[in-house]
């Protein structure tokens, strides 16, 4: 059920450590790094002797590049990009469903690659170009993929739909004329409960054939 691209989603796009990556590191014997972070006084950002950047554990001021705008926000270092987008930044298109990198409802693009924003720490997203579903469909009325989703009724309750929209944008960016098998694989990193896959598959194929997505 997983595509190669899905694997990319588990990592921050710039090779920085995502939440899942962090867990992998610590389970491989990197627990000392975590201890250093927790030993720092609240609110501090400093560097260790080795030069590693330390943040938190209290709130830290960061700036995120979201849909082309530089947004300042105060977050705890443990806060995910998803929760930062949905909460203080009020970009609620990305949804929190599984909150652990399975369902894809939180998918956004970071530096042009789709990622599960629940597996990225907000502080790790600094310096990256973040595009949410709102930004990727800024011209809502004239967006060919949005129109294809509507035409092929690729949504019911709609809670998973924004995640599928970002995944579909990513698919068509990398593979503008996908085969049916490529469409299925490209959407395999996302889950829907209402069962909209028939409409989704047809919408992505339809938009690709239209050559405008």
């Amino acid at each position: 059920m997983s595509s190669p691209k899905e694997q990319d989603k588990h990592k921050g796009s710039k090779g920085e450590v995502s939440r899942r990556g962090f867990l992998e590191v610590t389970s491989a014997g990197g627990a000392a790094a975590a201890t250093v972070v927790l030993d720092q006084p609240a609110g501090a950002q400093s560097r260790t002797q080795a030069g590693a950047r330390i943040a938190g554990p209290g709130p830290v001021a960061i700036t995120l590049n979201v849909n082309g705008k530089m947004l300042k926000v105060s977050v705890e270092p443990r806060e995910t990009l998803l929760d930062t987008l949905r909460g203080p930044l009020d970009h609620t298109g990305a949804k929190r469903v599984c909150d652990r990198g399975t369902c894809g409802a939180c998918t956004v693009m970071m530096d042009g690659k789709s990622v599960y924003s629940c597996t990225v720490l907000a502080i790790d997203a600094q310096g990256s170009k973040i595009e949410t579903v709102e930004g990727l469909t800024a011209d809502l009325k004239n967006d060919a993929l949005v129109n294809a989703f509507v035409e092929h009724d690729a949504q019911q309750c709609g809670y998973c739909t924004p995640g599928f929209m970002v995944a579909a944008k990513m698919l068509l960016k990398e593979t503008p004329k996908p085969t049916y098998a490529e469409v299925k694989a490209g959407l395999s990193g996302n889950l829907c409960r209402c069962g909209t896959y028939v409409g989704l598959r047809n919408a992505v194929l339809g938009a690709a054939q239209g050559g405008r997505a």
């Binding site: 709102e134 009325k141 509507v150 949504q155 709609g158 809670y159 924004p162 929209m165």
Partner: peptide, 19 residues
């Protein structure tokens, strides 16, 4: 007829209680 709230949902603009 295409569903009326389709664009809002597809573009992540539709607001749910959790939003």
């Amino acid at each position: 007829v295409s569903r009326l709230d389709g664009p809002q949902k597809s573009g992540g603009r539709a607001k749910y209680g959790s939003d």
